[in-house]
Design a protein around this nucleic acid. Structure first.
Length: 368
DNA sequence: TACACGTGGAT
DNA sequence: TATCCAAGTGT
């Protein structure tokens, strides 16, 4: 590994020893650390992909109650699985977990594999997750490199370059592999991530509390803030959308996002469409419904953002001229559907009050 | 490789 | 308020 600092590098044995000593007294008590059930570890690792620990905890606990075993999950329906995932985002993770559970039941005798190569066959299990399940659930000597490990190792070694790209990416994996002990890979890997999460944080790292402050090249050269050299992400672009609230005899109109859709596949939402800069809302609403609307009343505006869009969502109560696309459901049924977060907010509004929310302002013009 | 995927917490 | 970004993976 390229080192630019003059600090003498510590041996792997010394790094392990000091890290594990630190971890013994600083490990957080997390739900998935109270079990060695490979299924639970698998669920937690998938939930934790790009998602903060605090967000995951309640989802994990609910999930384990609802789908306690891989067998239980394998026998569940996509709708229920997505509902349990509702609000967590990256919904392909939930579908992958379900597919993977069925694969485990069908092809792997109901047992979650302990080796990286077999784990990689499961949908949604990439290099990180395979290493995590292998090591944490089975004690297999497997390396992991996640965002935490990446940051810790880049700083430790003073590594230049983008850790998400070659060649540094491969170098970090080799470094992690050299560091994992033959025995105790589970604890070691968790300790390494914990260090990144609790001490070697992206901003304002707690170097004075760090067990690796001695050998750390970044600290020695005061470059903690510059490392790792992650590429800055693209600015999210603005997007304006409208959603149609259509009520008929106490039922609300919803649509299911097609299974093959890129986003929100299989989830339910209120009919919605993108609206152009100077386009009349009624026109966009007509597009969302598949039929022109005769009356339009603005109810509220929501802001949300997804991956690369910052979305303004204007919600309108409206009346379609003809039979619109979609399905009418009762408020109770609405509760049971898996919806994207923004639409879930609208639905909860509807069901908690028992009626449509109060209009934000006076009625907007109606456009036949 | 470069994007695309969701959401909410933290600063 | 704006931006960053969190136990990544799939295409």
């Amino acid at each position: 590994m390229a080192r630019t600092g003059k600090t003498t590098s510590a041996s792997s044995a010394e790094l392990r020893r000091t890290l594990l000593a630190w971890y013994r007294t600083h490990a957080r008590d997390l739900p998935w650390r109270r079990t060695s059930d490979p299924y639970a570890i698998w669920v937690s690792e998938v939930m934790l992909q790009q998602t903060q620990v605090a967000t995951v905890i309640p989802y994990f606990e609910r999930w384990m109650r609802r789908f306690p075993t891989v067998t239980a999950l394998a026998r569940s329906r996509t709708d229920d699985v997505l509902h349990a995932w509702q609000g967590l985002g990256y919904y392909s993770r939930a579908r992958g977990l379900l597919e993977g559970a069925r694969m485990v039941e069908r092809e792997l005798g109901g047992r979650i594999p302990g080796d990286v190569a077999t784990l990689r066959r499961l949908p949604g299990v990439g290099p990180y997750t395979a290493g995590a399940i292998a090591s944490i659930a089975h004690g297999t000597r497997a390396a992991i490199v996640d965002g935490n490990v990446e940051r810790v190792l880049c700083r430790l070694d003073g590594a230049r370059g983008d850790p998400r790209k070659q060649p540094l990416k491969a170098e970090l994996w080799r470094r992690a592999e050299a560091l994992v002990p033959a025995r105790g890979a589970s604890t070691f890997n968790q300790a390494l991530m914990e260090l990144g999460a609790m001490v070697c944080t992206p901003k304002a790292p707690g170097c004075e509390r760090c067990p690796w402050q001695g050998p750390c090249v970044a600290r020695a050269s005061s470059r903690q803030a510059e490392l790792p050299e992650v590429a800055q992400r693209a600015r999210p672009s603005a997007l304006h959308t409208v959603a149609a609230l259509v009520e008929r005899r106490g039922h609300w109109l919803v649509k299911q996002v097609p299974a093959g859709a890129l986003r929100w596949a299989g989830l339910w939402s209120f009919p919605h469409a993108e609206i152009a800069a100077r386009e009349a809302p009624a026109r966009a609403l007509g597009r969302a419904l598949g039929t022109p609307v005769t009356q339009v009343e603005h109810l509220r505006t929501l802001q949300h953002s997804i991956t690369r869009f910052r979305i303004t969502l204007d919600v309108y109560r409206c009346s379609p001229r003809a039979r619109p696309d979609g399905r009418y459901v009762t408020p109770t049924q609405l509760q049971a559907l898996a919806m994207p977060a923004a639409h879930r907010r609208i639905a909860d509004d509807l069901t908690s009050v028992g009626r449509a929310p109060v209009p934000a302002r006076a009625k907007t013009r109606s456009r036949p």
